[in-house]
Design a protein around this nucleic acid. Sequence first.
DNA 1: CTAGTTGCAAAGAGTTTGCATGGCG
DNA 2: CGCCATGCAAACTCTTTGCAACTAG
Lengths: 130, 130
Amino acid sequence: MSKYITKQRKNLIDFLSAHSDESFSAKQISLELSEDNISISAVYRNLSELEAEGKVRRVSQGNGREIYYQYTDSDCCKGCLHLICNKCKKTYHMNTKDADILIYTLAQNQHFQIDRKSTVLYGICAACHI
Amino acid sequence: MSKYITKQRKNLIDFLSAHSDESFSAKQISLELSEDNISISAVYRNLSELEAEGKVRRVSQGNGREIYYQYTDSDCCKGCLHLICNKCKKTYHMNTKDADILIYTLAQNQHFQIDRKSTVLYGICAACHI
DNA sequence: CTAGTTGCAAAGAGTTTGCATGGCG
DNA sequence: CGCCATGCAAACTCTTTGCAACTAG
């Protein structure tokens, strides 16, 4: 999809990929990149493209009140479930074996087939839980 | 919080509680109740109050793009995890035992404490999976 | 040079809020 | 009758879109 590598797009990808365990709102991203002079519309357009390409995923915080974007490391994010800490907002990968067991169990017991892409488990991470 | 039982609030609660396995956007609700003459602002105000009271919960669909509201049956919704079908949008309750195992496992293996209130698992339900 | 990308501003969609009116108790 | 809730419209926020100017290749 992306034909030209503009400095705005490069800066955006560089920033998101450098913080692939965090997610950001469109506004936060435009603020972070403010010294690179990227417009909010370019942020949205690039995020949409990157999401369509599967390089960025959208997650919700606060039961859908806020939309955040996050770089998706295609290698390890493919088949795993994500955990997001409600406090620090960082993303973690659920242990693959546990995820497989969960998905299998739910399929067996309730015939519900979990979609790994749209499912995120929220809670408190080890670092934030004192 | 609610001091008066107006006909608008009654109609809203009646509608949501009659479809407690489904969730609706504010606009959908106002359309459903259009014959009862409820304004969109009254819908939002009542939903906010009901959410604060714990009688309604907010869920996100489409990775946060859309916000839906759902009646919370306080009895059985207290301690369980919710499943939402990406196709029919209906809500199911995850088997309590399986939920407990999941939560325990994640706490043990990754020291991540799942919050039952904010977590929803998305996928395809038995009825929609052919 | 040429097509894709940007910035700006305007347009939409969703949600919140102020204020006068109306209705519950 | 007094206070709360409603309806309306305006204000706000977030996101999308049209168009002319710019720029990567």
